[in-house]
Amino acid sequence: MDKTRTDFISAMRQLASGVSVVTTDGPAGRAGLTVSAMCSLSADPPALLICINRQSRAMATLRRNGVFCVNVLAIEQMEVARIFAGQANTSDGDKFASARWEQLVTGAPAAQDALAVFDCRIAQGMPYGSHDILIGAVAEARMREGRPLVYSNRAYGGVAPVAV
Rank of each mutant, 00 (worst) to 15 (best):
63 R>A: 11
61 T>E: 11
108 A>R: 01
22 V>T: 04
87 Q>V: 10
107 G>Q: 03
49 L>N: 08
53 N>A: 15
19 V>K: 00
77 Q>F: 03
105 V>M: 11
6 T>Q: 14
55 Q>E: 15
12 M>T: 08
90 T>H: 03
63 R>K: 15
77 Q>N: 07
142 R>Q: 13
12 M>Q: 07
135 I>Q: 06
59 M>R: 12
162 V>L: 14
36 S>F: 00
138 V>F: 03
9 I>Y: 12
2 D>T: 11
78 M>D: 15
81 A>P: 07
46 P>E: 02
137 A>G: 12
52 I>Y: 02
112 Q>M: 13
122 I>L: 08
56 S>N: 10
15 L>P: 05
13 R>C: 05
99 A>W: 02
60 A>Q: 14
75 I>E: 15
108 A>E: 04
146 G>V: 09
128 Y>L: 13
159 V>W: 07
5 R>V: 15
136 G>V: 00
61 T>D: 10
61 T>S: 11
66 G>D: 03
51 C>F: 02
76 E>A: 11
139 A>T: 14
136 G>R: 00
15 L>N: 13
11 A>W: 00
85 A>D: 01
62 L>G: 02
69 C>E: 02
159 V>K: 04
99 A>T: 04
27 P>I: 13
3 K>S: 13
27 P>R: 10
107 G>T: 01
16 A>P: 02
116 A>M: 08
72 V>Y: 04
26 G>H: 02
42 S>D: 10
31 A>D: 08
98 S>C: 12
30 R>S: 12
122 I>A: 06
101 W>Y: 12
52 I>V: 12
112 Q>H: 13
